[in-house]
Nucleic acid binder design. Sequence first.
DNA 1: GCAACGTAGGTTAACGATAACCCATGGCGC
DNA 2: GCGCCATGGGTTATCGTTAACCTACGTTGC
Lengths: 343, 343
Amino acid sequence: MPGTSPTPRARASMADVGRLAEVSAQTVSRYFSGRGYVSDATRARIEAAVAELDFRPNLNARSLRSGRSHTIGVLAVGPINYGTAEILSGLTSRAQATSYAMAIAQLDLDMADPASRAQIRRALDGLLSATVDGVVVMTPYLGLEDLLEGRLESVPAVTVSGRPRQEQDSVTVDSHAAGVLGTRHLVDLGHTRILHLAGPTDRNEANDREQGYREVLAEAGLEPLPLVRGDWSAASGHVAAMAVAPGTFTAVAAGNDQMALGFLAGMRERGLGCPRDFSIVGVDDMPDARYFAPALSTVEMDFARLGRVAIDMLRQRIDSGEHVPRTRLEPRLVVRDSTAPPG
Amino acid sequence: MPGTSPTPRARASMADVGRLAEVSAQTVSRYFSGRGYVSDATRARIEAAVAELDFRPNLNARSLRSGRSHTIGVLAVGPINYGTAEILSGLTSRAQATSYAMAIAQLDLDMADPASRAQIRRALDGLLSATVDGVVVMTPYLGLEDLLEGRLESVPAVTVSGRPRQEQDSVTVDSHAAGVLGTRHLVDLGHTRILHLAGPTDRNEANDREQGYREVLAEAGLEPLPLVRGDWSAASGHVAAMAVAPGTFTAVAAGNDQMALGFLAGMRERGLGCPRDFSIVGVDDMPDARYFAPALSTVEMDFARLGRVAIDMLRQRIDSGEHVPRTRLEPRLVVRDSTAPPG
DNA sequence: GCAACGTAGGTTAACGATAACCCATGGCGC
DNA sequence: GCGCCATGGGTTATCGTTAACCTACGTTGC
């Protein structure tokens, strides 16, 4: 078949489609936008032309002219660990379902390095240059408020897992409540010497969970033990297990499941079994936690839902132009085999 | 201070910057692109105007005019599990480092549903409409070749973890080699009755790993045992452990670490210990694997590097206009405590 | 009988940036 | 003295789409 588009040439435009369908480009635009009247006969001709030319509308031109891009930007600071991956999953699925496109800037950087702040700023500028309709900001780190504050006024934004005091345009799975639930479970079982294996100091969620732990102990009239700190990783939980003095505690409230996993491994190496010699409770309820040895009692955090809610809130923020109230998702205690009464 | 921009108004354009700096918009464009001559004095005036107006170039307009968007699209089919998250991490970090923007379409759908194919097509169309300079396609599923083939000619594309027979524009961590390494390790230890806990039938990587397993057994003159199949999840590994007949095998080559975790848990429930009663080797070497009970012998897959290489290849493909040869990253055996000689 | 409205579609201009082209000036080689 | 190139910068047209406005015809209500 000679003559069948040897090289597909450049992309077809609405004008090309219009020429083939014998209408104006504007009518093609109307066909795609649904605004305005297009007769069935014209509609059919346009559809044929679109198929023939393999036409796809140019979103750059559309955004430029209309001022809206139907794109949501995501700024993620920090590594893609279990929680982040779940949130991302929720974000993309909800965005896809509401036919929003997603532009993502993820940067995993050393927050101690002062250059990091400049990098975050650049990444955000990049998203804004792409004229996103709104931004989802995932910055679990403390002290980034001022960095973002001046920047985020020009575009609708929703903060995920952000600082606790932000009362608008933010959504989080309540980490304070998670700390409370886990620790209270240990107290209810009768434990009195409860250790907290905390996450990194500069992470909001780590501090919230620690705060929950402290409050429950205070309520129960118990003395908190010296804090042991990790970095969310199983490796750091393992290090912690090697460092603690056995006999000084009967239970551990871990900042997340992975540190609990490492801690369990470390104690096992030292000949100490769970829940015989100590109890431990995690936070996250990652799918693997049920299959740890022993099955881990933990606090479920629905991060995927967090992501979906973030998109919903952002869309509402974009459509209404008004700020949306803070949303706080409630975690849930999941009791398995790693917790038992002391002794 | 009256007069200090009451409402930031609309975004400033290069024409606005030019007006303030008393040059033409074209000179402002030259300043940003670095093409053409701009004197130091003019440069300084432009910089001042940019700062004053909080100007950010409009990438939509730039892409529309120049035909290049400096954006890479990522199409990810399937859930964001450990491997996907790592790849994503590699992709974003490399893209960020080379100042490419990233548009992502991830969809986790039921491949049995025929509507899924239409959804994938729509997602890809969405990326192409956004005029990305190139696409990274992550489709671990079999049978998507035809779907993508007609679509991916109009734009540079690199396939990640794709079908084994694609000899160009593709990068993968060799899953066949992973199957070989894990199984050979078990054979070398003296095991003769080796079970394969495979991943889902419709996943390329699952089949490659199974193939590696089969080849090693054939080489060693051993008979493969009936296949047990999971879905990559720890839960499915647990189910498998409950289903197998103990005594029929002395070692397990698991398709990934998470299924190995579930399998270990299931066997533990049945009173069978590792490596006393059986050996098991995984694939992935996720950071947690070292802290399983026992520490898991596994095959390391550097998925983050895979992501970085994918970006490098795609950039080369975009810049040169020529296809790039397939890249295959080599996995590495990591021996820990879950494997020992039989008996 | 005609105003008002629904239907169907065309024309023009503009979104913000850059490609292509043009015009100056000054210095240098020969 | 003249051609040529480096430097510094302006003008114009255009990328593909849509907002705003306009035309024209047919129906309906009163």
